[in-house]
């Protein structure tokens, strides 16, 4: 494992999992995002930071194949998957667990959608509950879980529908501060173990610095990538890092660019 971020970058350059290639998207004649080029390397966590209305969610809709861009392509391991949903896993802002399904059926839904039988899908999802800290919740309904657990269940579902790549749209924004910092640690740990590369939308600058390998700044109207910031500190980063001068320097740099 390359711990030096520069090495990480170089390793990433060799294996790009997801790539947005010159993407422009308009809605009713109005350009929402223009000429977006971003990459996500294997094992990376990359944040997309930007003001409201800068088109972050629109970009995710394009990347996940929900909408077709006017220009550009989405490449998954070099294969063109533009406008082809079901290839790049997408977790929306809300956990979106279906209240009528037990947790295990919520989580294994992506497998069922791909044509697997319910029993088999459950059997495949079940061993992962422990990894995701959800042991014992398999046969509960979503209303019986706390906010943090629901989010973890949604992440597990995202993982099961992913092919190594996940798009997360502000997955932790609804959680309280303490739950959030716990889930940050947990997420970095689990990501490493299950080998999931993540592109992450957030409003929260601290969260972005704490979690990311790189941060893209998306800004303006229409939204464009203004800059890219590489966070060099080793992961996982503890609370002390968020009090360090280095952290503040990153924060200043980002605020300046927003």
């Amino acid at each position: 494992m390359a711990d030096d971020p520069q090495e990480r970058r170089q390793a990433m350059d060799k294996e790009i999992l997801l790539q947005a290639d010159h993407i422009t998207k308009k809605y009713s004649g109005k350009t929402i995002i223009r000429d977006i080029n971003i990459e996500l390397g294997k094992g990376e966590l990359v944040s997309l930071l930007g003001m409201s209305g800068s088109g972050k969610t629109t970009l995710f809709h394009v990347l996940s194949g929900l909408t077709l861009p006017e220009e550009g392509r989405v490449l998954l391991r070099g294969e063109d998957v533009t406008g082809n949903p079901g290839r790049v896993s997408y977790m929306l802002q809300k956990d979106m667990l279906f209240s009528h399904k037990k947790i295990i059926d919520n989580v294994s839904l992506p497998l069922v959608i791909r044509g697997m039988g319910r029993k088999e899908a459950r059997a495949q999802a079940d061993p992962l509950f422990e990894d995701f800290g959800l042991e014992g919740t398999q046969y509960l309904y979503p209303c019986q879980l706390s906010g943090g657990m629901r989010q973890r269940a949604a992440l597990l579902r995202t993982y099961l529908s992913s092919q190594g790549v996940a798009l997360l749209d502000e997955p932790f924004s609804a959680l309280d501060t303490i739950t959030k910092s716990l889930i940050h640690k947990w997420y970095l740990d689990v990501m490493e173990r299950i080998d999931l590369s993540t592109l992450f939308i957030t409003h929260d600058i601290d969260e972005a610095i704490l979690l990311s390998d790189r941060i893209y700044i998306l800004n303006g109207k229409p939204g464009q990538i203004r800059d890219q910031i590489i966070i060099k500190e080793k992961k996982p980063r503890d609370e002390n890092f968020s009090l360090s001068d280095q952290f503040l320097a990153y924060k200043r740099e980002i605020i300046g660019k927003l």
Binding site: L66, P85, G86, V88, S89, L92, M96, L109, I113, S161
Partner: peptide
């Protein structure tokens, strides 16, 4: 949208 993103 979520269902569609999962390929449903």
């Amino acid at each position: 949208d979520l269902m569609r993103a999962m390929g449903a």
